[in-house]
Amino acid sequence: MRVEVWSDVNCPWCYIGKARFEKALELFPHRDEVEVVHRSFELDPHAPREARPVIPLLAAKYGMSPEQAEAAEARIAENARGEGLPYLDDGRDAANSFDMHRLLHFAKEHGRQGQLLDALYRANFAEERSAFDDGRLVELAVEAGLDGEAAAAVLAEPEAYAEAVREDEATASAMGATGVPFFVLDRRLGVSGAQPAETFTRALEQAWESRVALPLVPLKPAK
Rank of each mutant, 00 (worst) to 15 (best):
V184A: 10
W208R: 10
E33T: 01
A197L: 00
A151W: 10
A95D: 09
L117W: 06
V165D: 08
D118T: 11
E26I: 01
W208A: 13
V154K: 00
F98M: 15
A152Q: 05
R129C: 07
G179F: 08
P158D: 02
G91S: 03
F106I: 02
F125K: 11
L189G: 05
K108P: 00
F182G: 02
V212S: 14
G190M: 15
E109H: 14
L120I: 12
A213P: 04
V191T: 04
P218Y: 07
F182P: 03
K23C: 00
V37F: 01
L27F: 06
F125S: 08
E67I: 07
L103D: 07
R49H: 13
E205P: 00
A69E: 08
E128H: 14
G148I: 09
L104R: 09
Y62G: 08
L146Q: 07
A164E: 14
P66V: 04
T199H: 09
A152K: 06
R129W: 08
G91F: 02
G179Q: 13
E143Y: 01
Q68K: 02
W6P: 00
D133G: 07
A207I: 12
A19V: 01
M64S: 03
A164V: 07
F132D: 09
R31P: 10
T201I: 13
E143P: 02
A203V: 08
V165P: 03
D44Q: 09
W6A: 01
P29M: 05
E209R: 15
E198P: 09
E139C: 01
E42G: 02
E167P: 01
E4L: 04
G148H: 11
Y121P: 07
L103V: 04
F98H: 12
L27H: 14
R20Y: 01
T201C: 11
G114K: 11
M1P: 15
A51P: 13
E127I: 02
L137T: 02
P218K: 06
V184T: 07
P196M: 05
M175C: 05
F200P: 09
R52V: 13
P196L: 06
D99I: 04
E159S: 15
V217R: 01
F132V: 09
R122H: 13
A72N: 12
E205M: 03
H101C: 07
A144N: 03
D133L: 02
A170C: 05
F98N: 11
L120W: 09
A126V: 10
E109W: 11
P215S: 12
G176A: 04
A72H: 04
A177R: 00
D168W: 10
E157G: 00
T201V: 14
G193V: 10
E67F: 07
V5E: 07
E67H: 10
H101I: 03
A151I: 10
F183P: 02
V191Q: 06
R92T: 08
P45V: 10
V154L: 00
V212L: 14
V5K: 04
S173H: 04
P221K: 14
L214D: 13
Y15A: 06
G63N: 12
E167N: 08
P29L: 04
V3W: 03
Y87P: 11
